[in-house]
Simulated scan of single mutants.
Amino acid sequence: MALNLEAIRATAERVAASHHLDVVDLEIQAGGKFRTLRVFIEKDAEGRARLASRATEEGAEEDAILPKGIPVEMLSGVTHEDCAAFAQDFGTVLDVEDLMPGAEYTLEVSSPGLERKLRGPEDYTRFRGSLVKVQTFAPVNSNRHWQGRLTGFTGDVLTLDLSAVKQKGKAKKAATETTIEIPLANVEKAHLVAEF
């Protein structure tokens, strides 16, 4: 029996919403008898706003939950308790609704991490100003791998400031300009680069 990824994602989002969380990504890894369902979660917009507010309060420098030097927007705000509660409820629903039919599977739940993948237009808008690595389907200026600061995202085109990092390899040769524009449709994969 085939997996219905849309039903699994919809169920994950429904369960996450009941815990004031958002599903960032979901991936299934299958190999032989062993299957792993990974779900990456973060606090919902309201929870992230509370985290940002807390970071601007006096004394936030001593806050053990808010690491020093990391932009608060890059933090998911998710705790071990959030992951455990979500995994318990989501795993129960998966089993009751038989959304992972067949052999056993492993459910892994975690935050997306500091170097999270960028998925859609919302992510490119939200993380404007962050360092990113981008790989394109087709070469742009004879290069498929770029790293720079995401300075803009308009009309489904992202703009990278290449002067924000030292370019290497082909990117160094291809970077005749200080900025580059890449259509979102040409982005094969992209992720944040942690700054400390």
Rank of each mutant, 00 (worst) to 15 (best):
Arg126Tyr: 05
Asp89Met: 09
Pro139Leu: 03
Phe86Tyr: 05
Pro71Ala: 07
Arg126Thr: 11
Gln88Arg: 06
Glu115Asp: 05
Thr56Leu: 08
Gly148Asn: 08
Val140Thr: 00
Asp123Met: 01
Asp82Pro: 12
Ala45Gly: 12
Ala85Asn: 13
Thr92Phe: 13
Leu51Asp: 03
Ala60Gln: 00
Gln88Asn: 13
Asn143Pro: 08
Arg144His: 01
Thr92Asn: 12
Thr106Leu: 10
Lys117Met: 15
Leu118Met: 09
Pro71Lys: 13
Thr92Arg: 14
Asp89Pro: 04
Phe153Tyr: 15
Val96Ser: 04
Glu57Cys: 14
Gly152Arg: 14
His145Lys: 11
Gly113Asp: 11
Leu51Gly: 13
Arg50Pro: 12
Thr79Glu: 03
Ala55Gln: 08
Ala64Tyr: 02
Pro71Leu: 03
Asp123Asn: 05
Val93Tyr: 09
Glu57Arg: 09
Gly59Ala: 11
Gly59Ser: 04
Asp95His: 14
Lys68Val: 07
Gly69Lys: 03
Gly113Pro: 05
Ser53Trp: 07
Ala84Pro: 09
Gln88Val: 04
Pro101Gly: 01
Ile65Arg: 08
Phe153Trp: 08
His145Leu: 10
Ala87Phe: 01
Asp63Ala: 04
Pro139Val: 13
Arg54Gly: 06
Met74Ala: 11
Pro101Asp: 15
Lys133Thr: 13
Arg119Lys: 05
Ser76Lys: 00
Asn143Val: 13
Leu99Glu: 13
Arg119Gly: 00
Asp123Cys: 00
Glu73Cys: 04
Ala55Val: 15
Leu114Glu: 06
Lys133Ile: 05
Pro121Trp: 03
Thr92Pro: 04
Asp82Leu: 03
Asp89Glu: 13
Ile70Gly: 11
Lys68Leu: 14
Ala64Glu: 14
Arg48Phe: 15
Leu75His: 05
Phe153Asp: 01
Gly120Ser: 03
Glu122Val: 09
Glu61Asn: 03
Ala87Lys: 03
Ala60Glu: 04
Ala87Ser: 10
Gly120Cys: 05
Tyr124His: 01
Lys68Asn: 08
Leu99Ile: 06
Ile41Pro: 04
Ala49Ile: 07
Cys83Gln: 11
Pro112Phe: 01
Glu46Asn: 12
Met74Gly: 09
Asp89Gly: 11
Gly129Val: 07
Arg119Met: 09
Leu66Thr: 00
Arg144Ser: 02
Gly47Pro: 15
Pro139Ser: 06
Met74Asn: 15
Asp89Arg: 05
His80Asn: 14
Thr136Ile: 00
Leu75Thr: 06
Met100Ile: 07
Glu46Val: 12
Thr56Pro: 10
Gly69Glu: 06
Glu97Asp: 02
Pro101Met: 08
Asn141Val: 01
Ala84Gln: 14
Gly69Tyr: 12
Met100Gly: 09
Phe86Cys: 03
Gln88Phe: 09
Gly59Asp: 14
Leu99Pro: 02
Gly129Ser: 09
Gly148Arg: 14
Thr92Asp: 05
Val109Lys: 14
Asp98Thr: 11
Asp98Pro: 02
Ser110Lys: 15
Arg149Trp: 01
Thr125Trp: 04
Met100Tyr: 08
Val72Tyr: 15
Pro112Gln: 09
Pro121Ile: 05
Lys117Asp: 12
Glu104Leu: 14
Val93Asp: 12
Arg149Val: 03
Thr92Trp: 12
